[in-house]
Design a protein around this nucleic acid. Structure first.
Lengths: 260, 260
DNA sequence: CGAGCGATTGATCGCCATCAAAGTGGGTGG
DNA sequence: CCACCCACTTTGATGGCGATCAATCGCTCG
């Protein structure tokens, strides 16, 4: 998952489209990979692709499947997962509308992609996409920008998993979600609201923790007045500064469960 | 660190260079970013850069330093580190000759880069490098390939840190090193030999473990006949199949310290 | 209203961290 | 050449965080 939206120089208004353009009502036009294409390019590009819809839990592709398609996520949330032979699972990333996936230099995909919520993606043949990219340098530059951004975000994840405590990981995760859609996240009273479309199991598998630990730390955070659990899927952030400090590893341990 | 060398389609013989070409004796010519350039391009490119040498422990740049240069590592090993306020350290990656670093879309670097061994890098101004890339599409394609490759390797690291035990992490680390230079690594008797130029502290900070754990697991592996500790910096792999199985999470726990 | 699944809470365990001490090896100076 | 030093590694003893096992809660749906 990106730390936040890709750098703003790419969040530019995309070229205006004529009426009836196949991408005319695309929600992620300004963010997606296609934003660097002009109207005609985009139309040509779009014709080479299909739209796929997935229900929650459905799989877009499996790890090691031959990588014959690339995808642009237009609606919903995907998770990228890796599984160990004994069933241990790691979620490498959550993907949001505008994210791009599936381009690899190896033969097969290096992770599975599954729908967390209802999902809609644009699908393109890898071969045709690459041919198209070769003739559109700005698309290649955009590809690199996306990869570089993902890489930076994934290295943040490495820091989280390698060196942060359970509460720090969760705080970090919440702040990341809170920072990503600065548009949606305010409660009626103007407080930061984070939506968690994924299950506790997913959060655990993303943060390298068990679901019980996720639950316990959420409860501890609630007890400390850091957050409010509006519902299972909605968290209100009551103290963003302190939560951010915890996420950054700046806060005193303050034992989560110490009563004695 | 790459899982292994970048895909072979890029490991092509680089164009032959005339005598006295400034890159004529470059060790990493076939692997580095420059491999996509022909002789004249390369000469023009090289003139824009400088050579920097670092002693072990010296820093090439710090996290959050403005990113004004990019680098190609020609000799030695670098580590990319992130530090938490209280001193906890995570090594995001080890870099080898032929690796490229420093290109980011943010203002500053997202990690520090320090020399593990004696190091030599080619330095280029970011601005000039980007201008040069704009006019050399094959360079941009190569950049994307490197980023994509790094991203896949970093996601492997996420799996290691999120879901693998101490011994699995170390086995995985050893096999990664063993697979990376298939050229160097055989002992006189034809067995797999891995060189560890970095300290135990570095290994620990890469794998999210303490140095005591690294030592203990090395000893346990030795006791199980998996490896032989030739010296602090040299490990002979005695049972690659089983070590690979452990690395992949396929092996039974086989309690490391269970005597009773 | 009951079934069933996910989330929460509780009790205990075990892996790895921490604290501590001893071993090793390389470099320096007498 | 050898004694000493210092940094790094290894080994040992103990503790704590998060995992595991287990029970309860709460919501959704039939």
């Amino acid at each position: 998952m990106s730390i936040m939206h890709p750098p703003t120089q790419f969040d530019q208004p995309a070229p205006v489209l004529e009426a009836n353009h196949p991408c005319g009502d695309c929600i992620v036009r300004c963010k997606a990979i296609c934003s660097v294409l002009d109207s005609d390019e985009l139309k040509a590009f779009r014709r080479t692709g299909a739209t796929i819809r997935l229900a929650p839990g459905e799989t877009l592709f499996y790890e090691d499947d031959p990588a014959r398609s690339v995808y642009s996520l237009t609606r919903g949330m995907l998770r990228l997962t890796k599984i160990l032979p004994d069933g241990r699972r790691q979620i490498a990333d959550f993907l949001f509308p505008g994210d791009f996936l599936g381009l690899t230099l190896e033969e097969g995909h290096s992770f599975s992609a599954e729908a967390v919520t209802e999902v809609e993606v644009c699908q393109f043949s890898t071969a045709r996409f690459q041919a198209f990219a070769t003739t559109h340098p700005q698309l290649e530059r955009r590809l690199f920008a996306l990869a570089a951004h993902e890489l930076a975000a994934t290295r943040q994840q490495v820091l989280r998993l390698g060196r942060k405590s359970a509460m720090e990981r969760i705080a970090s995760f919440l702040m990341m979600l809170a920072n990503r859609d600065r548009d949606v996240p305010v409660s009626p009273e103007g407080r930061l609201m984070v939506v968690l479309p994924m299950s506790r199991t997913d959060i655990g598998d993303y943060l390298g923790l068990r679901i019980e630990t996720i639950s316990r730390e959420f409860s501890a955070m609630k007890a400390q007045g850091l957050i409010r659990l509006v519902s299972t899927q909605r968290v209100e952030i009551l103290d963003p500064e302190r939560l951010e400090a915890i996420a950054a590893g700046e806060a005193l341990p303050e034992r989560s469960l110490c009563a004695h």
